[in-house]
Each structure stands twice: as C-alpha cells, then as structure tokens.
C-alpha cells in the first residue's frame, strides 16, 4: 500500500512542477509588457519602470526567475494583486470558503439525487421510469448551465419572487467570519433569519452547479448497478430469498459505488469550472468570479496565482481519489 502511495506521489511531483511552469510562463507570454499594462493609462516614468522591472525580477535570467518563482510558491508567495495590492495567497484563501461551500452543497445535491435515481433506474431497467430518468439525465448533461441559471432566475426570482438573485446573504445581516462558510457563520451569529437568508441565497446556485454532476452520477450509478446486478453473487442472494431492497441496497450498491466514487472525485474539476459561470451569474464572491474579474481587469498576478492554486487543488483531489481507490479496491494497488 505504501509503495502504491509512493508511486502515485512520484507522478504528482513532476505534474506539479509542470503546472508551476505553465503558470510561470503565463505572465511572460502575454502580448505586451505586463508592467506597462499595470501602469494603466497614467503611464510611468522611466525610473519607475526600471524599479518595477527589478521588483518583479524581469532583469534576471529566466531560469533564475523560475527558481525564485517556484521557491516563492512553495512558501505561499504568489505575488501581489496589481489592483488591490494584497498578496494573492491571502485573497485566494479569503474567497475560497465561498466556493467550497457552494461546491460542497452542489455535490451533496448531486449525490443525494443522483445515487437513488441511478439505482431506481437500474432496478427498473427498460421501464418507463428508467427511460424518463435517463432522458432527463441526458438533458441535464447537455445543459448550458449559464442559460439554466438565467431560466431559474426568471422563474424563481422574477415570477415567483422566492429566491434572491445575487450574493450570499441579505445586506441586513452582519456578523464576523468564523469559518467562512455562510451557513455555519449565520447559525453561530444567532441572528434571527440570517440562516434562512443564507439558505435562500444558496438554493439556485447549488441547483445550477449541481446539475451536470447530478446527470453524470445518475448515469454512472445506473450503468455500474446494471453491471453488478448481472453478477453471480446477486443471483445467489436472490436464490437465498433475500429481500430485493436488501439485495439492491446492500449487495449491489456497495459494489457499484467504486466507479461512482471515482466519478465524484473527478467531478471536482467540473465543479470548479462550473463555479466560474455560476459565481459570475449569481455574483457569488468566490474563486470563479474572482478569476473572471481579474482577467477582465488584467490583474495578471491574480490570474497566474489563481490558475496555479485551482490546478493544485484538482491535482490533490485526484491524488486523494487514487489513494482512496487503492484502499477500497486492493486489485489496483498491486499493479
């Protein structure tokens, strides 16, 4: 097991270096001089320009620049934002809980609906229910989520007035950040209505972000279940006269879960990409919106740092999934 972990880690390190190299190159392959861009329309004196070149290290050999960048990254130094002048690292971790909260809720939504839907479809294979579920899953899978978000806003915010259109909580409420998770913080604050407001703000973004993972999980669960239901041990269980609920729920689902867990782990990338669109539409103050805004403001250190951090998170989750997979399924370890 330890050997498996080490070999997996051995693949992680070169990939990590490659990712840092890409994010390092990002600011250097941009058309135009980033320092001029930074100066904006006011322009810049020659002295100031030289000062900035020195500060950003553009006068040194590229290899040395990369080395300094890499050692900086490992110590949590991602540079400073051109706009806010704050360290990118701090900004990232200030906004990350918002994205994390939204992604977790979306994932819970997707798993809570997708797993049972997949199981029910597999058990009722070929019947009306199966067809209806799988057709809706395909529609969900093909959904342009930015349009889906707008439709939900039209119906639930515009026509019915049930949910707010943007933000994480009503402006009425103010309480200090404890965990960064609005649902927990609003409960901790003890203010009346704060929690309900946080929930109402979360509903639409959760549905929008969870739609594609939901469709993928439902499809994956169904096909994994169908495969398992054809196995001999299921027939044995049936022959023994076990209750169908027990067979489907315990014997089959447990074994069908392995591919499903992989899919859940691999959805992290999808969630973060979806967060870019979802957060932009719902003005959700998280990483996705921060990245899009920074791209438009040409705040290159932020784009560079954010790109790196998101890639590292995706890689870490994939590493974790692989290791967990090895724990669940011993056949994989021995390869």
């Amino acid at each position: 097991m330890f050997g498996y972990f080490l070999s997996r880690l051995g693949m992680f390190i070169p990939t990590f270096l490659g990712v840092t190299l890409i994010s390092f190159m990002f600011i250097r392959v941009l058309p135009g001089d980033p320092i001029i861009v930074m100066a904006g329309e006011r322009g810049m004196t020659e002295e100031r320009y030289q000062e900035m070149v020195e500060k950003l290290g553009f006068d040194k050999p590229v290899l040395q620049q990369y080395w300094e960048y890499l050692t900086g990254v490992l110590q949590g130094d991602l540079g400073e934002s051109f706009v806010t002048k704050k360290p990118v690292w701090d900004e990232f971790f200030a906004l990350f809980p918002a994205t994390m909260e939204l992604s977790l809720c979306a994932m819970i939504f997707a798993v809570a609906l997708g797993l049972p839907a997949g199981v029910i479809a597999a058990v009722n294979r070929g019947k009306f229910f199966d067809r209806a579920l799988m057709s809706s899953a395909l529609v969900g899978y093909s959904m342009p989520i930015f349009w889906w978000a707008l439709l939900l806003i039209i119906v639930f915010s515009g026509n019915l007035g049930w949910t707010p259109v943007s933000g994480r909580i009503d402006l009425l409420y103010y309480f200090p950040d404890v965990t960064g998770f609005m649902l927990i913080d609003s409960l901790l604050s003890g203010q009346e209505g704060a929690f309900a407001s946080a929930v109402r703000h979360l509903i639409l973004p959760t549905i929008v972000l969870g739609t594609i993972p939901l469709a993928v999980i439902a499809r994956q669960t169904r096909s994994a279940m169908l495969e398992v239901l054809g196995e001999d041990y299921i027939r044995t269980a049936r022959a023994k006269g076990l209750a169908p609920v027990r067979i489907n729920g315990l014997h089959a689902l447990r074994n069908a879960l392995i591919p499903v867990i992989t899919v859940i782990g691999l959805s992290v990338g999808t969630l973060l990409a979806g967060a870019i669109l979802t957060e932009t539409i719902f003005s959700w103050p998280g990483i996705g919106k921060w990245m899009v805004d920074s791209i438009f403001r040409r705040d290159y250190p932020v784009v560079q740092g954010g790109l790196l951090m998101i890639a590292v998170i995706v890689m870490l989750v994939n590493l974790l999934v692989d290791v967990l997979y090895g724990v669940i399924n011993p056949k994989i370890r021995r390869r």
Partner: peptide, 14 residues
C-alpha cells in the same frame, strides 16, 4: 496530465 490538471473552461478562459 499537466494540461488535464486545469479545469478545461478555466484553461480556455486564460
């Protein structure tokens, strides 16, 4: 692997 580490929409955006 490196390219796949980035969420596709994000990489395309950048």
């Amino acid at each position: 692997d490196i390219i796949l580490s980035f969420p596709s929409l994000l990489l395309a955006l950048v």
